[in-house]
């Protein structure tokens, strides 16, 4: 972008590619796309300096719907792609995106280690408690008695609590948003991007097709009753007792982010011959 163009303030729609999403009408992810682009506009990020990275799943289609750089990788590995990119190119803004199956099931190990590594990236998970792209199976955040063709009568397995795991693993910013509140979601994403280190935002994003019951989330969500804390012990207690519908920033950590090399250039040379002379 030349100087003249960069002087013109970009708006949310400038961050959209215009490609028509594959999502079902009424999908919560439309609002997340709206919130994400709004947050980028509000932060006046240059689209060329942002990379939106994802894995596989409905929500993982989001990079192609933005006008930034993007990478739609394989299932479950988006955080590894994001980490590699950010470490190699620290000056970029790296936003990792995806769903609950991609992030917490097949990608669960990377989730924990991304939290503890604390690289300065933002991880946005659109949690709808279901595998939508494969047409309705239970995910790690699904209620144990939710019936599906693959697990009739339910999985019988307790749901995964992503925010608790993230906190215990060392994430530096935690928040929960609701896609039905795009404005609040945008503000949350904006803060997450600005917060140093690994920021994790769980966005409740209903699946109208396979989880029509989630239409009721609108009535369940509420602003978190207290301000976010920077005390991990206090945050853990709150998260362990919350019912999953408290919305807002929940934890603002003060850990030192992963140290990034600012100089990954391939132009420098060094003669290693001396190391091997006898």
């Amino acid at each position: 972008m030349n100087q003249a163009a960069s002087d013109i303030a970009l708006v949310a729609s400038d961050y959209k590619s215009g490609l028509k999403p594959v999502w079902c009408p009424g999908c919560g992810d439309y609002s997340v796309l709206q919130a994400l682009t709004k947050a980028m506009a509000s932060l006046a990020l240059k689209p060329e300096d942002v990379a939106v990275i994802s894995g596989i799943g409905c929500s993982s289609r989001i990079p192609a719907y933005t006008s930034t750089y993007g990478f739609h990788g394989v299932h479950g590995r988006s955080l590894a792609l994001s980490t590699g990119l950010k470490v190699a190119r620290p000056e970029l803004t790296v936003i990792c995106t995806g769903g609950d199956g991609d992030g917490f099931s097949i990608g669960g190990n990377h989730f924990m280690h991304a939290c503890r590594r604390n690289v300065d990236i933002t991880y946005i998970v659109m949690d709808n408690q279901v595998y939508g792209m494969t047409k309705g199976q239970a995910s790690p955040t699904t209620d144990p008695f939710w019936d599906s063709a693959l697990t009739p009568g339910g999985t019988g397995v307790s749901p995964f609590h992503p925010l608790v795991i993230a906190l215990a693993s060392g994430a530096n910013f935690l928040g929960r948003a609701f896609s039905g509140d795009p404005k609040g979601t945008a503000a949350m994403i904006e803060e997450a991007i600005q917060h140093p280190g690994f920021s994790f935002v769980q966005i409740l994003s209903p699946c109208v097709t396979y989880r029509p019951d989630q239409k009721d989330w609108r009535n369940k969500v509420r602003p978190a009753p207290v301000e976010a804390t920077s005390d991990p012990a206090r945050a853990a207690r709150r998260l362990m007792t919350d019912d999953g519908f408290n919305i807002g920033p929940l934890y603002r950590g003060e850990r030192e982010p992963f140290k990034l090399n600012q100089n990954n250039s391939s132009t420098e040379t060094y003669d290693f011959t001396g190391q091997f002379e006898v």
Partner: peptide, 12 residues
């Protein structure tokens, strides 16, 4: 993870 990190770095 290591292969994807490498791919991420190279994409950059």
């Amino acid at each position: 993870s290591s292969i994807n990190m490498a791919i991420g770095g190279s994409y950059g």
